[in-house]
Amino acid sequence: MNIFRLAGDLSHLLAIIILLLKIWKTRSCAGISGKSQVLFAIVYLTRYLDLFTTYISLYNSIMKIVFIAASGATLYLMYVKFKATYDHNHDSFRIEFLLIPCVILALIINHDFTVMEILWTFSIYLESVAILPQLFLVSKTGEAESITSHYLFALGSYRALYLLNWIYRYMAESHYDLIAIFAGVVQTILYCDFFYLYITKVLKGKKLQLPA
């Protein structure tokens, strides 16, 4: 564990908590893509299966349980409790166009052709594009509530911090994983446009308005 990875995990945890609080406090999931949340739930379920088979550390196990539980709670709030506030019309990204290529790629490019490894690889590829429906929704509505942009900033920062973690681990432990690094770079690049808008607008107190 290093400071970059810890900061990344905490940023990830913060993002999930911000989202849950936003939906719970405003009793609305307007502006949030349910499809992205479904993809994140799939990411956690396919990646954290080893929760029951390998024990790495208490921290590792607790965080996995928290992520799976929080994503389940978010889906429940979005699709059951506050279903009426879910923006079906704008949340129209075809997630099969993300799922199928990730499955195919995971079968072709992986470290080991075993079920656990394929699922982990699929989860890594899927996570890199899981935010697309959310970014698509923001671009369609043309704006995002400031709490939603804080959520996106924390979520985008998490993988950016992981990139620093991988640089550190390569230098300090000569440990690297090209699949995770490649997907992490793609994932972080997808946020760059948003990061620019967040820093130039939201931090100045303006609303996040995408140029029409």
């Binding site: 990875r5 995990d9 990830h12 790495i56 470290h111 080991d112 992981y162 000569s174 690297y176 090209l178």
Partner: peptide
């Protein structure tokens, strides 16, 4: 052959 990821990351 790159190092096998020890999957200690979240």
């Amino acid at each position: 052959q790159q190092t096998k990821t020890d999957k200690d990351e979240l």
